[in-house]
Simulated scan of single mutants.
Amino acid sequence: MQFQIDNMGCGGCARSITTTIQAHDPAAQVMIDLPAKRVTVTTQADVTAIEQALLQAGFPPQRIA
Rank of each mutant, 00 (worst) to 15 (best):
M1F: 04
Q4V: 10
Q4E: 10
Q4L: 13
I5R: 07
D6Q: 15
N7D: 11
M8H: 13
C10V: 14
G11Y: 05
G12H: 11
G12I: 05
A14S: 15
A14I: 10
A14P: 07
T18F: 02
T18V: 08
T19N: 13
T19V: 11
T19Q: 14
T20D: 01
Q22M: 08
A23F: 04
H24K: 14
D25Y: 14
D25K: 14
P26W: 12
A28T: 09
Q29A: 13
V30R: 02
M31W: 01
M31V: 14
I32P: 05
L34M: 08
R38E: 01
V39M: 02
V39Q: 03
T40M: 06
T40V: 03
V41M: 01
V41W: 01
T43D: 02
A45N: 02
D46I: 11
V47A: 11
A49E: 10
A49T: 15
A49W: 06
A49C: 06
I50C: 04
E51F: 09
Q52S: 14
Q52T: 15
Q52V: 15
Q52R: 12
L55E: 11
L55R: 13
Q56D: 15
G58Y: 08
P60D: 08
P61Y: 11
P61D: 04
Q62E: 12
Q62N: 12
Q62L: 09
R63S: 11
